[in-house]
């Protein structure tokens, strides 16, 4: 193990480590803690210049205010309307593409695979004008469906990379045995490979959920009104309205950040497994 386990270190270092841990964490999360504190600080405190002291009371009414006086509930609903179809769509498409690229040997296999991988890295701006145009001509501009369709297509690149590598690591003998038995390719996919892909599906769902929830660029390019904007774009317009109303901005930020955070803590194992795929060989 590296570094040497702290248990083998002298007593003084052990104590120093135990003290350093919470201190480092506190410093690391300082911006977050500041915003969390501000979100429960009454507006009167801010007006009096009490920015860092104890709040005079815990003003949870800031949160109620945000919900009452802004369309944030609608923004959040929109975010779900974009995120959930995207997760499902990507998984359906990439289970199939990943299967095709992992199981079959054909000449352009690697070419197609690297097309997906490379496409996944391109700057969004090179896609922006044509994708906006395409969405307009499909009549889906400024709709959650239009946004979701783009996300499905784009995320398929990353998901294909992930699924293909995952299936490649499965024992190939299973498929060969099935083929000897005369099982059709579709049934191999459905009854043999798909059930084994559960961990990959779980990992990708949480990852894609978080990526799409947090997307801001495409939200601003493809949606324009409060009826369709997801919460990231919505928060930015609210920020413009709430000039210097930091208690509201903070409360709004925390609300917007919450769903992926809950998702992360609930599915931590899968999340990290997904993110670190390929970090070890």
């Amino acid at each position: 193990m590296f570094p040497r386990p702290i248990q083998q270190a002298p007593r003084a270092s052990r104590i120093a480590y135990q003290v350093a841990l919470p201190v480092a964490l506190l410093l690391w999360l300082l911006p977050l803690l500041g915003v969390a504190m501000t979100s429960v600080r009454p507006a009167s405190d801010l007006a009096q210049g009490n920015y860092f002291g104890m709040p005079s009371y815990l003003a949870f009414e800031n949160y109620a205010d945000v919900f009452r006086n802004s369309p944030i509930a609608h923004y959040i609903l929109n975010s779900f309307k974009v995120t959930i179809p995207t997760v499902i769509g990507c998984l359906v498409l990439s289970c199939m593409t990943g299967f095709a690229l992992a199981i079959y040997k054909f000449r352009s296999n690697l070419l197609v695979f690297f097309l997906f991988v490379a496409g996944n890295f391109v700057p969004f701006q090179i896609l922006m004008v044509p994708v906006r145009d395409l969405t307009l001509s499909l009549g889906l501009y400024n709709s959650t469906l239009g946004l979701a369709l783009f996300h499905i297509a784009f995320q398929t690149g990353f998901c294909t990379l992930f699924m293909r590598n995952f299936i490649k690591a499965l024992p190939f003998e299973l498929i060969e045995a099935a083929r000897v038995e005369g099982v059709s390719e579709v049934r191999i996919f459905w009854f043999i490979v798909l059930p084994l892909m559960r961990p990959a599906i779980a990992a990708l769902s949480v990852l894609i959920f978080t990526f799409i929830w947090n997307d801001y660029f495409w939200a601003t390019v493809l949606t324009t009104s409060a009826e369709t904007q997801p919460v990231t774009a919505g928060l930015n317009s609210l920020n413009g309205q709430w000039v210097a109303a930091w208690h509201l901005v903070s409360a709004g930020s925390i609300i917007a950040a919450l769903p992926p955070v809950v998702m992360f803590f609930a599915m931590q194992k899968h999340f990290i497994a997904g993110l670190t795929l390929g970090a070890v060989k």
């Binding site: 498409l93 054909f106 296999n109 496409g119 499905i152 297509a153 398929t156």
Partner: peptide, 29 residues
Amino acid sequence: SQRKLAPWLFLAPGLAMFALYVIIPIFQS
């Protein structure tokens, strides 16, 4: 020939979406 055709059938929907929204727009830009 199902083993020859199967990979392309499995690839078709994903590849079509990816081409439409990612590959072709690069050249359009």
